[in-house]
Design a protein around this nucleic acid. Structure first.
Lengths: 409, 409
DNA sequence: CGTTCCCGTCCTCTCGCACAACAAATTCTG
DNA sequence: CAGAATTTGTTGTGCGAGAGGACGGGAACG
């Protein structure tokens, strides 16, 4: 959003152009197709300036001219030509690393999934084995890419704590990884050198839901991901909350019940011991080896068991703490909560209303992900695309063309 | 930091100038006095551009030329002239509203307290009575202001929930206020019309500590204010965390002990029932009517009682939740915690280390406020000054000159 | 005491956006 | 159905802001 990364810097004319070009692209990316007239009013710039920016984007091969969007006009006047993402424009690779499977997609600007592949991952697998599997999936989705289309980068969603400086995976409890440089592993397996970004899955879920999911236009939202572990991604004031090291949002280890069950973190009664995957499984007597398919099992229920209702209340109580600390306008319930919430909506809402302060409670809404189970995947695409919005020219400069043949075996 | 308020807008040349002028002033404000050479390197702009900006600031009467700062030179070359805040430059009124007293100060750019006054406030006072008392204090501190110096605005720190859109005090539990428009009340009592900003005391404490306290240069910090209630102000990525309505940071009502004491919010065992003013008072058998002087009572201790040590542990455990959710680099302990922490440092640190996740724990530090008990007051000055850094020219345009005679009875 | 280094000032240049005028494309209206 | 009204795209001009170089000033260093 800002023309410079570090605060306190001045702005020169070069930065203005970069910023405007990036912001324009961000709008096209967000809307898929947009008219130049809408761009003028959105960005508050002159028609002629927009024309110049659009022209530069076209000459970079990022966007292309489109026919005016047909539909009900809202008045007289010449219809405004459309700007849309070029068919052979830049793309990224998005990776959603789960505890039992990896999903890889080739994603273009505008958030379109152009190709997708997935494979199971052994939860006791070594990092290099997983990296090789991911690399194989990447080769597969890149195969059909047009030779002219540049690869901007790779974004990876990780179920764990990721250091934001360098993308090191500090801890992925359910993969049993400590201090794994997964980005480097994947690049080595590919034999490529492109920008790689890694981030926590809940953080990326929040980002994706903010840009093109249930939270479009909402600048303060939280994505709560309920998997085996529970985490939250926070968007506040329209930007990601990262924290000093990038570990912000670990709400799964909020103190919930001091007399509760021991948690893998060493404490007792963390929130995730009451509402995480294992707790839900226990509530419906699901055998531990089927926790990975918990969502399918939950889909089978039409009425909740008393134990599930208690879990719903615990979920609401925990969400109340989140509402009190972050005061979001929207909470998106992802992961297993996506299947759980419809069953125990009443209990969750009641638990939340019971424990949250009135002021922050009155403006908050609970919702399911608008992107289904793809939130983290599309969020991974977003962080990989991010450099394009900061400086389109520079990002294209460090992109790779003809990746298909580069990766051909 | 950004040249435009709303995201998604473009930047034109006017905005560039505004941004650069504001950023320059922010640097002068932060450093008190700074050389033009430092400004060039900090802002990354050309010498001649800085000269132009400094000249404009001088002609606006905001800054003035200063002799080169004497001290150890770091090399040869012509010494760089200094830029410092003008003696008769713009100022603001800062108000720190407490449950038992109000402090009012006239504060200039650079954060200098030019005048200060305070008065007791009855905790069962009506809002208009408190407003009248504050107005009287304001008249007193404005009396000696130079006629040429413009009043930019009034900033008020409130021990409660403040709506960020309009500054309405939604709830100030210890003043027993609900939905009070205190800004309007004070303005009416003064018979003036200047910009008034209100915010939560912990939020302002965090802001002040970030700009000129213990957290200078630290972009992810939390100010935990332990008074009768417990709240937190959060700076993340260098900006204030506000939340959708402005209520973010109400960590006092984090679930701590489900079997604990009832809290005024209606729940049981909120964190502030274990570490708030009343809990501390109980731990040292301080009579309830002396809770307001709790810090003085605490100063009298040299070794903690076992009850105080337990409170320290509870403080550490709660801070662990804060560390896990926000991943700050610094936590500043304000309010009564300022007196409590030195007594039970070991217990707090141990409780924190015991419950926080290793990754966010390793980079966090606990500290006492660098501004003593003035954090919230100086934070109030900062939000009142804020418009100057966004657009100095516009802010001066809406400022009032010769306030001294305007307010004379 | 001269050299070196750095800073402030002045001037010119470049670049990006705004603005105005005109052409083009569609809707509205009589 | 034709002309007016409206909105947009295009083009050329102007303005403003920062960059960059030339010059002189002031202090440290040898």
């Amino acid at each position: 959003m800002s023309p410079q990364r570090r605060a306190g810097l001045g702005t020169n004319q070069e930065a203005v152009r970069r910023h405007n070009l990036g912001t324009l692209l961000r709008h096209v990316h967000g809307a898929g197709q947009i008219s130049r007239a809408e761009l003028t009013s959105l960005m508050g710039l002159n028609r002629s300036t927009i024309a110049g920016l659009v022209g530069e984007l076209e000459s970079l091969g990022i966007s292309e001219r489109a026919m005016p969007a047909d539909g009900p006009r809202q008045g007289a006047g010449r219809p405004s030509a459309g700007v849309r993402i070029a068919a052979e424009g830049p793309f990224v690779i998005a990776v959603d690393l789960g505890v039992d499977r990896a999903v890889v997609a080739r994603v273009g600007l505008g958030g379109r999934v152009l190709e997708r592949a997935q494979a199971p991952v052994h939860s006791d697998g070594e990092a290099w084995q997983v990296g090789a599997a991911v690399a194989a999936l990447i080769r597969r989705v890149v195969e059909g890419a047009p030779a002219a289309a540049p690869l901007v980068g790779i974004g990876i969603s990780v179920p764990g704590l990721v250091r934001r400086n360098d993308g090191l995976i500090r801890l992925a409890p359910n993969l049993e990884w400590h201090d794994v440089s997964f980005g480097g592993i994947v690049l080595a397996a590919l034999g490529l050198d492109v920008p790689v970004s890694l981030a926590n899955d809940a953080d990326l879920g929040a980002l994706a839901e903010h840009i093109r999911g249930a939270g479009v236009g909402i600048d303060d939202l939280i994505y709560v991901s309920g998997n085996v572990g529970v985490g939250a991604g926070v968007i506040t004031g329209g930007v990601r909350l990262e924290g000093a090291g990038g570990y912000a949002g670990e709400v799964g280890h909020l103190r919930f019940n001091p007399q509760g069950r021991p948690c893998h973190c060493g404490n007792r009664g963390c929130w995730e011991t009451e509402v995480g995957g294992h707790a839900i499984a226990e509530a419906i007597s699901c055998p531990p080896d089927k926790v990975a398919q918990l969502d399918e099992v939950l889909e089978g229920y039409t009425t909740p068991t008393p134990e599930l209702r208690a879990t719903g209340t615990a979920l609401g109580h925990g969400l109340a703490s989140i509402v009190n600390t972050f005061n979001p306008r929207l909470i998106v319930l992802g992961g297993y909560f996506r299947s759980l919430y419809p069953l125990v909506r009443g209990e969750v809402n009641a638990g939340l209303a019971d424990r949250a302060l009135p002021a922050p409670l009155e403006s908050v809404t609970l919702a399911l992900p608008g992107l289904g189970s793809d939130s983290a995947l599309l969020g991974a695409a977003e962080i990989a695309l991010e450099p394009l919005f900061v400086d389109p020219v520079a990002a294209l400069g460090s992109a790779l063309v003809d990746v298909g043949s580069l990766l051909a075996v």
